[in-house]
Write a protein that binds this DNA or RNA. Structure first.
Length: 972
DNA sequence: TGTCATTTCCC
DNA sequence: CGGGAAATGAC
């Protein structure tokens, strides 16, 4: 029926039949027909074709918005928003749901009322919610009638309507009320004299309402539009009603808007399984999925998969922690752009997609990617790429000027090398070096390239209308002046003409291999460049700038301008080059930025306040980290999460980066807590990274610093993680307070006792050995908050027994009881012994320590720190074993020969080998460990080195010893 | 007890 | 207006 009305073209005889014989709405009673002939009364004698022309119908001109907030009655004080038309524009023109009555003459009434979205009991029903219009501070309920006529036109615009969400408990009432009015009206349409409903009708309404109430979808409604003619005080339908598209309740998790508000990271390895956090608008954990998909250049979905998470990973309907699915190809050698969106299975609704990228896994190798980079299809010809001239498609098409330019400037040195290379590769150009340089200058190729990224307007360049956009190759020539001539060349692409010029231009640059053209970002063409583009763009501009050789101050300001260009997330070119690990580009940037005056660029922050250094650290690009630090990057900037680069390095166990950073971080910064309250040292322990712990301690990290969240020292954390080696190191080698209590009063020993795992015992033994006190009590849980909480609970639970006691009495009881409780539990806190009652072996261990023994152990503790006598003599000793010069020399030798591995074995540090192998200098870590661990002497090391035939190393050690002896004898 | 939906409140 | 969040209730 609805279709019939809204699309008159589809009318058929059968639809006429059904209309004639259908429900009450069509007023089929013979009486109404005879009583008042309708203008179209004679339709039955017309042929179907004629009917099409004649029959009145309603047409929805403007649909209502898809989402709207339904408000409860209690929130209807004041005005809120009204239902707008779907094509309403926020700031431009507001529209409203609008219908038009067609093929009708004379006055009519168009009515709007609230209906169910779907058939409830075989047909659509009035909805229990109320469609209200505010008039004189009163909410007038639906139906809303709108008078139309030839004079005012036949369009009914329904402005200012709101939806009142009837509370569950009132659903029945509302439904019954609406049904009554409706039925009465239909009855009166047949018989004006009817003024009330029969009991039978009432009962029927009630039972219907009851059934419907249960099945009614409270989060989705429709507008129902009807047309009537008023005759003798009653309304008679003119045609079938039409229904709007559904309006969904914006507040509901079932129909509310799906939205990704924030995301943790935008990149994952193509192997997937990387943890990502997203914050989302309200979702139901049982009804939400995270869809990854990829589009080809025609915007067809070519791949999709879903993030992995369980219901437990959906946090309070507002956040999801999931793992990325693997990309369809785990062997990719360059970053692939995909999209990510929320998907709601029940209604198939999706959020706006956001960009996400898959990067090659480390395993598939950087080398492979390197090779790929030189390929034509990927590389856009930038000046940078000119270093690999064979890969530059533009170059091949150049038509050299017939007469070489005679005047030659002395080129700057940077440009010179570049051009030299090109010349070597393109001997056929018939120009000497300086001629070619001049040629390039005139051609101004770099400006073309940069224009391309900025939004290259192909139409403008090519001459309006002259050439269509669907070309894919073009020749570029020059007549010797600085003018460019661009010629179209065949091969139409037959693409969507709506494609933006940027993409078309891009195609022209990569057109050597037609089969591989892959314009990306078609979907998001309006938004800014992606990271790779931005980095390339910046370097292109930089090179261009260098060619121009502007005066210094101009150069500086232009450089700032270039690096001031940001992506939406605040990442600048430098950030991007790091994120995508574009080493060549980075090098180019650094050569410019390294000049010293560009600190602000080097320390540029994105929207998360991450500097390039942060990103490099996160990506474990230690070379880049090193370079950044060398050229003056500030290692003491914190992100919005309160993280120093050092925190991030430690979090990710990127040990080389840690070392680099520690060279520049002051010891104060080593102890800085991030917004999780943790110092780098805490994080290192949490990551079970002994090496990092050692490095940090060596660099001056305070082992007794508490985390600000729970008041734990690094020892607490080590114990919590079951890290025996870290705990041992801390106890043996540092002055950590073994009995330090966290905010709950718990010592490390408390933690060791309750630790679930086989390490529990070893930890306890270790802690006890270093005079941990098993009788130290933790704090009793008390505090105003808890007491009050108790009080309220009491009050709530008690009243059953006595109905009539007054507030004061309640309060007194409550207070009394809490006091009692406090007294009871105040007895004492729990000791480690208390906690060990269900762990027999641990208990036995603890019980061995009688209070007296604790005293004794204090003395034992003093012993192990074998303060090197030499240290007092030789102030500059860093390592404790070797002076820095010797250490460097030894490391150099052993790193090269690989001898450090054997040495590690001989020193019983075999377990270290794997963890230090991949570091910049394993020997150094080995020696640091040896030093800190303290059970090795220089003589030991010397004899081991001798045994290993590391003669050079032995010599270095001897040299040092000789020097020491000499200097100490001098002193004495 | 925790989670989620419903309802009310408030800026 | 338009939005966020607390309070309450149901499971």
């Amino acid at each position: 029926m609805m279709n019939c009305a809204s699309s008159p073209g589809s009318y058929s005889q059968s639809s006429l039949d059904s209309q004639d014989s259908s429900s009450s709405m069509s007023a089929p009673s013979p009486m109404s027909v005879t009583a008042s002939p309708h203008p179209y009364q004679n339709i039955l004698v017309l042929t179907p074709d004629q009917v099409v022309a004649e029959l009145p119908y309603l047409r929805i001109i403007e649909q209502p918005v898809e989402k709207f907030r339904f408000r409860y009655k209690s929130e209807m004080m004041g005005t809120h928003g009204s239902i707008l038309g779907r094509s309403s524009d926020r700031n431009r023109k507001k529209t409203y749901p609008t219908v038009e009555l067609r093929n009708y003459d004379g006055p009519a009434i168009i009515r709007c009322s609230l209906y169910t979205t779907h058939q409830v009991m075989g047909e659509r029903m009035p909805h229990t919610h109320r469609l209200v219009v505010r008039a004189d501070n009163e909410d007038k309920d639906d139906p809303h009638d709108f008078a139309v006529s030839p004079e005012v036109g036949y369009r009914a615009v329904f402005q200012g309507m709101g939806i009142i969400h009837t509370a569950k408990k009132h659903i029945m009432d509302e439904l019954v009320k609406k049904k009554r009015v409706r039925l009465l009206e239909t009855l009166r349409a047949r018989n004006v004299n009817i003024t009330s409903l029969t009991t039978k009708d009432e009962i029927k309404i009630r039972s219907e309402a009851e059934a419907e109430a249960k099945r009614m979808n409270l989060n989705s409604v429709c507008l129902c539009f009807e047309a009537f003619v008023r005759e003798n005080g009653v309304l008679k339908p003119i045609c079938d009603p039409v229904y709007s598209s559904p309006i969904n309740n914006m507040k509901s998790a079932l129909t509310g808007e799906l939205k990704i508000c924030r995301i943790d990271k935008h990149v994952s390895s193509c192997l997937g399984n990387e943890e990502v956090f997203i914050l989302v608008e309200k979702v139901g954990k049982k009804n939400i999925r995270i869809k990854f998909f990829e589009l080809d250049d025609e915007d067809n979905e070519v791949w999709c998969d879903y993030g992995k998470f369980s219901e437990l990973d959906v946090h309070h309907q507002y956040a999801i922690v999931f793992r990325t699915p693997p990309y369809r190809d785990t062997e990719i050698d360059k970053t692939v752009d995909v999209f990510l969106q929320l998907y709601r299975p029940t209604d198939g609704d999706c959020s706006e997609p956001i960009k996400f990228a898959y990067k090659p896994s480390d395993k598939t190798g950087r080398a492979a990617r390197k090779r790929q980079r030189t390929s034509l299809t990927d590389e856009i010809p930038l000046p940078v790429a000119l270093a690999q001239p064979t890969s530059n498609p533009l170059l091949a098409s150049f038509v050299p000027p017939s007469q070489a330019s005679p005047s030659v400037d002395q080129p700057n040195s940077e440009g010179s090398d570049l051009f030299e290379d090109i010349l070597n590769e393109c001997p056929n150009n018939g120009m000497n070096s300086s001629e070619f340089k001049e040629f390039m200058k005139n051609l101004s190729i770099s400006s073309l390239v940069s224009t391309y990224v900025e939004t290259f307007d192909a139409n403008e360049l090519l001459g309006d209308g002259d050439l269509p956009l669907d070309f894919c190759t073009m020749d570029i020539s020059t007549d010797g002046s600085s003018k460019l001539t661009v010629t179209k060349r065949t091969t139409p692409l037959s693409r969507d003409p709506g494609i933006d010029a940027t993409v078309a231009a891009k195609l022209s640059h990569v057109s050597k291999d037609d089969t591989q053209m892959q314009p990306r970002n078609c979907v998001q063409k309006e938004t800014s460049m992606d990271g790779e583009q931005l980095a390339k763009w910046a370097v292109a501009r930089l090179n261009e700038l260098l060619l121009e050789k502007p005066p210094k101050h101009v150069l500086a300001s232009k450089v700032h301008e270039i690096f001031g260009k940001k992506k939406d997330d605040g990442d600048g070119p430098l950030h991007c080059a790091i994120l995508y690990d574009m080493k060549d580009l980075l090098k180019q940037m650094f050569t410019v930025l390294g000049k010293g005056q560009y600190r602000p660029i080097i320390d540029d922050r994105n929207l998360k306040d991450e500097t390039p250094l942060h990103l490099a650290v996160m990506q474990n690009q230690h070379e880049t980290v090193k370079t950044l630090l060398t050229i003056g990057a500030n290692p003491n900037i914190i992100t919005k999460q309160g993280d120093l680069p050092l925190h991030l390095a430690v979090s990710a166990s990127h040990n080389e980066c840690i070392s680099e950073l520690l060279r520049y971080n002051s010891s104060r910064d080593c102890n800085l807590t991030n917004y999780n309250g943790c110092t780098p040292l805490h994080i290192a322990a949490r990551e079970k990274n002994l090496i990092a712990v050692m490095k940090l301690v060596n660099a001056g990290a305070d082992v007794n610093k508490e985390d600000t969240l729970l008041g734990r020292t690094v020892l607490h954390v080590a114990v919590e993680e079951g890290c025996v080696d870290i705990a041992r190191y801390l106890l043996e080698k540092t002055n950590i307070d073994v009995n330090a209590a966290n905010y709950a009063g718990n010592t490390a020993l408390h933690g060791a006792v309750v630790f679930e795992g086989p390490e529990s015992r070893e930890l306890c033994r270790l802690l006890l050995q270093y005079k941990a006190n098993p009788r130290q009590e933790n704090y009793i849980l008390e505090g105003d908050g808890d007491v009050e909480f108790c009080t309220e609970v009491e009050i709530k639970e008690e009243p059953e027994s006595e109905d009539d006691f007054d507030d004061e009495y309640q309060l007194r009881i409550a207070e009394g009881e809490t006091e009692d409780e406090a007294i009871n539990s105040k007895a004492r806190g729990q000791t480690s012994l208390d906690l060990a009652t269900n762990k027999k072996d641990i208990l036995a261990l603890l019980q061995k320590v009688v209070p007296a023994e604790v005293e004794e152990m204090v003395e034992i503790k003093e012993e192990p720190s074998d303060t090197p006598i030499l240290e007092g003599v030789l102030g500059e000793v860093k390592n404790g074993l070797f002076d820095s010069e010797t250490l460097m020399r030894l490391c150099d030798i052993l790193d090269k020969s690989g001898g450090w591995q054997h040495l590690a074995e001989l020193l019983d540090y075999k377990f270290l080998v794997t963890s230090i192998r991949s570091t910049a200098s394993p020997s150094k870590l080995l020696f640091n460990y040896a030093d800190l661990h303290g059970n090795v002497s220089i003589q030991d090391i010397r004899s081991f080195l001798e045994a290993l035939d590391e003669h050079e190393a032995v010599e270095a050690v001897d040299l040092m010893l000789a020097r020491r002896i000499a200097s100490s004898s001098q002193i004495s």
